[in-house]
Simulated assay, not measured.
Amino acid sequence: MQMQLVESASLALLNEGCIVKTLSGPFEIIARDSKRILFVKVLEDANSISEEQAAEFRKISSCLNVPVVIVANKAGSKLEDGVVYERFGITTMNLKTLRSCLRSDAPVIMRSKAGLTAEIDPVRLRQERLARGISLGRMAEYLGVSKRMVVEYEAGTSRITLSRAEALYSIFGDSVFRKEGIKSEAGTQYPEGRSVFARKYSSLGFSAFETKRMPFDLIAKRDRKRVILTKVGDRPSPVLTGISRLIGAFRLAIVGKDKPKDIPSLTRKEFMEFEDAKELLKFIEDFEEEHGE
């Protein structure tokens, strides 16, 4: 059943113009188009993800600025079409909703503890209100809320219930609602790693974050365009290459003795001898150029 869902999700992404890579790793699918990169975790039941695993996914999403989405048929009960859920902070939806989000052709409806809520575009809401000459007080009367609540809507700090969203729609149409239900964890701050390799990266001017149960052990960021996914150990997974290629990151293996021929590799001693980030990046770039990657 899961394999069928993976195939269906891959096809949906391909039909929307994405380059798609299926993996036997933490994510079943990586997709990329001109606007975004997306990690997709495919599950029959979204409730099967653990809190620890979700926390790791959120960390990866933030460090790489790549959204993670769970595509599932159910979360205990069947997932509703057109509704976006969350599982431990990870955006969750069924396949039909994924298609809608990729096309950005419908307002985002969220299922939360407060029930069904709509996602407002706070900037557009304020722009549209001012363009129509509607005061905060008058808007509050339309929606049946306080002026303070309208301010919160326009600040993006509060979701709106469906009944109030319908009132808002009657005034502005769908222009004031968010239509992209897939978000990354960008902006969330995570502590840097404390391993000897993470500290070495830090000394070279990188921000280095350690990962768990991933095809890479470290994410080293010089800036948004210079990211090194690093595997420590003698058997780097081929999944590392697939991920790095699709997200446009560098890859590096830090090994004991035997260096694999298909990935830039350094022994621990060689890695620790680097004194300049540019030299390390040049080593990786030269390898990729020499091997036609």
Rank of each mutant, 00 (worst) to 15 (best):
R103H: 00
N15F: 02
V83A: 05
R251Y: 06
G115L: 09
S207P: 00
F57G: 01
L240R: 03
D45H: 07
S50L: 05
S203H: 03
Y190P: 06
A155S: 14
I160C: 11
G205W: 09
V69R: 01
S265Q: 07
R251K: 15
G248H: 09
P191C: 06
E56R: 10
R129A: 09
A155P: 00
T211L: 14
K259C: 06
A165I: 05
R178G: 15
G144Q: 12
A55T: 11
A277C: 08
S203I: 02
K257L: 11
A186N: 04
A72F: 04
P260A: 10
D217P: 04
G173Y: 03
F197R: 01
P122W: 08
R129T: 09
S62R: 04
V196E: 13
V66T: 13
F250V: 00
L229I: 10
T157L: 14
S203D: 12
S24V: 04
E154I: 07
I109V: 15
F172S: 07
L218I: 15
Q53E: 14
K74S: 12
K179H: 14
S195H: 07
G187C: 08
M149G: 00
L143V: 10
I37E: 07
K96M: 04
R178W: 00
P238E: 05
A114M: 10
D223M: 01
V196K: 14
G144H: 12
D45W: 07
Y201N: 02
F274K: 11
M149F: 11
L13H: 05
G89M: 05
Q4T: 09
L130S: 09
V123N: 08
V196R: 13
S202W: 00
I120W: 09
F39K: 05
V150E: 06
A54H: 07
M149R: 14
A155N: 15
A75G: 12
R164V: 04
G205K: 09
M272Q: 13
A46H: 08
E180M: 05
E7W: 01
F39A: 11
I243Y: 14
L281R: 04
M1P: 04
L252Y: 05
L266Y: 11
